[in-house]
Amino acid sequence: MLLNSIKTGTKKGLETTWLLAKVMVPVYIIVTIINSTPLIDWITVLFEPLMGIFNLPGEAAIVLVLGNVLNIYAAIGAMKAIDLTILQITILSIMLSFSHSLLVETAVVKKLGFKVSHALLIRMGLAVLFGIIVGRVGALI
């Protein structure tokens, strides 16, 4: 029984690793390429005012968009490809843990008979709220 659990667990772990690699490797490479072109400067300047609310650099917008539209794996790939501090990574992680994979998970939420607009409001609201709190408090430390 225990051996079977370990086998199934290992299989699931490898499947998850493959799943995250499939998303993460292309995202990481594309973001690394963008990072070496002037495009990154435009993105930085464009999102600076918005991301500044969370004490994040403008290019962190890429991480939030990928995490919400695709999934956490894509967000982590982008996070590693951009140079971020531990505080910035923690702020992004907190925001993403509330609000991620919105396309897939909203479908699950619907099955539960929960209003989609309410679910989105709760998730994005908490992400913004705690992004501001942790960002602001972190800026003081």
Partner: peptide, 13 residues
């Protein structure tokens, strides 16, 4: 991820 999945599978089984 791999050790975590093993532990969770044991917890499930």
């Amino acid at each position: 991820v791999i050790p975590l999945m093993i532990i969770m599978q044991i917890a499930k089984d």
